[in-house]
Write a protein that binds this DNA or RNA. Structure first.
Lengths: 221, 221
DNA sequence: GAATGTGAAGGTTTTCACAGCA
DNA sequence: TGCTGTGAAAACCTTCACATTC
């Protein structure tokens, strides 16, 4: 939950997550040369309700025209502004194993403005090697390299056993935003934003669904 | 929200996601040789509240002892039972690009009982090659191979442009559970469970959080 | 004494329904 | 007429508080 502008409004996490979805749909609509889009159409494309879409957007302003809908390009720009996507973020990746390697090549990140600028590993065989044009640095120099490269967001893709130690150093370097792929709950100070990407969780949800309810009720957003 | 066998209780998605967390913590506690654990301790380890933990578990039964807490191994087993983790699920992976390759080597999946049994791709250079001991099959034989291998869960790791076509075939083959890594909203019939893994979304959340922080427009609680 | 299990209270999010405007 | 923007209502989820049990 985030307090915006002077603490007047409260924006829920779900709303922010849905903004990401709207942004994605608007990008598609823009390519399809739509000029305007209704909350109904926007909702349909992400399996939400029109009221939900309108309410979400209303927290940030009045972007639509009654009787017409929302201007596609303009709304996309506005949501981009809200989410901070109309700029480039300097990202560091720690750990180039399985997951880390995949993330380096994940074009979706770059498209959204997340530029992986530095990569760290502790494996001497990997240090100095190239991943998509980015040289792998020694994690020994973590703090200094994070500062020198003006890193704003750190992605953790190391084994769970060492993740907490590394995060402690990352926090020491003054980083305020961390995306964690290691399957454990990391401890960070209250002024650091931490998000977890838990890939097993979704599979476990499917497992639960298959086991317990062969009765419809398919997509859970 | 899901109706459980018998349709009496409604279990929320959040509860099921937290069961995954409890399961993870219990695995750690088991290794640390804890015999019992209180809701307080369990909550602390995943930044939740004791009441939340007790309420979640109460939907499925009474697993604890008043005055004592929950038996670690037993509770782990029970939650495993609820989530369907006390068995092996046959999983097929479609697409061995960036993300797909990472998933093949992701040990966490196997540890939880998700065994990638078949891999598909449409790239002739990849077909027939080996990924961690699993031969890559031609996607032409998708329907037949899914059936012959008794696949229950399909993981989609192909580009967004082709994902819907592939999912249509997957559904035709009778698959009822799909985990989608492609950044779009797939259409599936209501009796098919679909979960999305949207890695950009978490980064966008961080971007939003940082932006609002930097603008002096508030803080996350 | 300690900690669970759970109705009831409290809080949050979603949906409804309609006024208001193009 | 068509569709947004939004208070109010409904649905949903979390927390409280305490009786209950070991």
């Amino acid at each position: 939950m985030v307090a915006v502008a002077g603490g007047r409004k409260k924006i829920s996490e779900s709303t922010i997550r849905r903004l990401s979805l709207y942004y994605r749909v608007l990008s598609v609509l823009e390519k399809e040369n739509y000029q305007t889009v209704s909350s109904r159409e926007l909702a349909k494309r992400e399996k939400l309700t029109p009221a939900q879409v309108r309410k979400d957007l209303s927290f940030f302003g009045s972007f639509g025209t009654r009787g017409l809908g929302y201007p596609v390009s303009e709304l996309k720009k506005q949501i981009g502004e809200i989410l901070g996507l109309n700029r480039v973020w300097n990202v560091a990746l720690i750990g180039v194993g399985n997951i880390g390697s995949a993330l380096v090549g994940y074009k979706e990140f770059l498209r959204q403005g997340f530029r992986i600028k530095v990569i760290f590993d502790n494996d001497q065989r990997k240090i100095g090697s190239n991943h998509k044009g980015i040289k792998v640095s020694d994690i020994q120099n973590l703090e200094q390299d994070l500062r020198e490269n003006n890193i704003e967001i750190v992605v953790i893709a190391v084994p769970a056993t060492v993740a907490q130690y590394i995060v402690d150093d990352v926090v020491k370097a003054g980083i305020k935003a961390i995306l964690n792929f290691a399957p454990l709950n990391l401890k960070v100070p209250p002024d650091v934003f931490l998000r977890n990407e838990n890939m097993s969780m979704e599979l476990e949800y499917l497992s639960f669904a298959l086991k317990n309810l062969q009765d419809g009720k398919g997509t859970i957003k």
